[in-house]
Design a protein around this nucleic acid. Structure first.
Lengths: 233, 233
DNA sequence: AAGTGGTCTAGACCACGCG
DNA sequence: GCGTGGTCTAGACCACTTA
């Protein structure tokens, strides 16, 4: 035996993952408890704990007090998606960012919008439609409703040079939200704005953002055909 | 002052998040170091460390040795997506799962497939096409290539009762992979299989799975119009 | 009842990277 | 150089859950 030294949580994680991957510890099987592993690896129990906690977070093992730690039978693939500011997303792809405000009005939103935002159906909200471009080419079409009750200061902002995306990040704190991904066909207007053909498949991201119990904004981003969202697992 | 007691990493995390959310610590600002916070909260430095590490993982703060910890200027929204086995996904939505094998052949894949899998362009692979149904209704169309070099045992499996998805999870360990989300229009064949109309927008998930340096499988899942992928942030 | 993971502590040393 | 976060340790107590 000429094993690499195991004395950091990273090396413990790597070794445990290796044993699971090679089926040395088979799916469904109980693995040794933290104290035993610490003894075997010659490190502190806290070090083993941190490694196993990370592996559990990734879905590869299941841990329960008293019952111990088991290798997951059907590991759930867990992907982490970074949803940056659109400007950054475009610049990270090596393109030059630009922004075009298409409309900014105060209006009563469709019921679907006021309902998901849990706001009174008859209240006017700020409606911003804008185009994000990379290298002067349409990159994403943004359709946003902003709650004037939650963000009254938005009334003073024209959103002509600063996108509502960035303005809200700087001016409206949020606590949590929900993201939905879907696909939909481009309508005539979408197509004209995104420089594609009507009927083509657009990738759509809906984001609903809250500050505690108050809805801040609901934004729909439509991406032209060919757009891909990619992540490692 | 009648503050709640802060002596667990959860309460430290909550308190720090609160201070950032209320702009008590503004975006871009340097926050106190771990030792000072530990003193203020009356807990050990390790407890503060764990809380701050979690907040940093979520993208809300940036930490650097010597430079200290700063509130992020434009927090990246980080979403965690669970990609379970399709059977589970369907059953979790309260539907009855069923599975229909459409074809199983050995064939030389298109160049695009062999290239992304980094396999010899002329080698035959196992090609499995199948339909996953929820309550007898088409839920997702699966188009999968399996590397026979990496998973020779797949040659013996008919995939008639067990989906390749579940069979591979049980029989082919994997170390990492890549997931891509996109939108595309249904072709005539897709439409017939998914019981939708040609030209409608399908949600598409591509997954490429590796075991160390060997590609295991490349699967494309096509979901009929209306499908949504949702997650909390 | 007892075994397991979950957490906290006090202290220590280290590695990185500003200034 | 030196302040900061990154990590490890040994020990302790606790909370949960199963046997």
């Amino acid at each position: 035996m000429n094993r690499p030294i195991i004395n950091s949580w990273q090396s413990v994680e790597q070794e445990v993952r290796r044993r699971i991957q090679t089926r040395e510890w088979a799916p469904g099987e109980l693995i040794p408890n933290e104290a035993d592993l610490a003894l075997e690896f010659g490190c502190a129990r806290a070090t083993v704990n941190r490694a196993l906690r990370r592996i559990a977070d990734s879905g590869l093992i299941d841990r329960r007090r008293k019952a111990g730690t088991r290798v997951a039978l059907q590991p759930v693939a867990r992907a982490t998606l970074d949803i940056p500011v659109i400007r950054r997303e475009i610049e990270d792809r090596g393109m030059t960012y630009s922004y075009l405000l298409l409309s900014r009005t105060e209006a009563v939103p469709p019921h679907a919008v006021s309902a998901t935002m849990q706001l009174p159906a008859h209240d006017a909200q700020l409606h911003v439609v804008a185009l994000h471009l990379g290298n002067e080419t349409p990159y994403a079409l943004e359709d946003r409703w902003i709650s004037l009750a939650a963000v009254p200061a938005a009334r003073q902002e024209r959103f002509e040079s600063v996108s509502s995306n960035e303005w809200l990040l700087a001016n409206a704190p949020w606590s949590h939200g929900q993201i939905t991904f879907a696909a939909t066909q481009a309508g005539r207007e979408d197509a004209a704005r995104l420089a594609c053909d009507p009927g083509q498949a657009m990738f759509v991201i809906d984001r609903l953002t809250w500050n505690n119990n108050a809805a801040i904004t609901r934004v729909r981003l439509k991406y032209p055909p060919g757009y891909q969202l990619r992540t490692d697992i």
